[in-house]
Design a binder for these strands. Sequence first.
DNA 1: TTTATGACGAAAG
DNA 2: GCTTTCGCCATAA
Length: 116
Amino acid sequence: MKARGSARLTACERIRATVDVIPRGRVASYGQVAAEAGLVGRARLVGRALRELPEGSAVPWHRVVNASGRIAARAPARGRASEAEPEGLQRARLESEGVRFDARGRIDLDRFGWRP
DNA sequence: TTTATGACGAAAG
DNA sequence: GCTTTCGCCATAA
């Protein structure tokens, strides 16, 4: 076993496990997930971890939003206008779970924010 | 094996 | 509300 067996999982691995624990109908901010994953101060790691996740992953990445309660701008403005995962998709998924959006597309973290 | 780059959100003013 | 800054990690060669 390598030293990286179990006591040294990559940050992305912990983030994946944490996001997978987010209950349905609730959303967590990147900082929230990072804090639960033991990576306080590395919220950006969560964003990168989600980017590395495969499409068929069972991780509810759509439940992760930024601290403003807005949809996590994944990579729609990266230059790929033909992206298969527009922001609308994430919003549709959250609405399907019962999460309500503000008229501007914002979520009330005070109401739907994940509280561990 | 090492080095270098890229890339992401949060916070503050 | 908007913009800029900071530092960290993983990947690739």
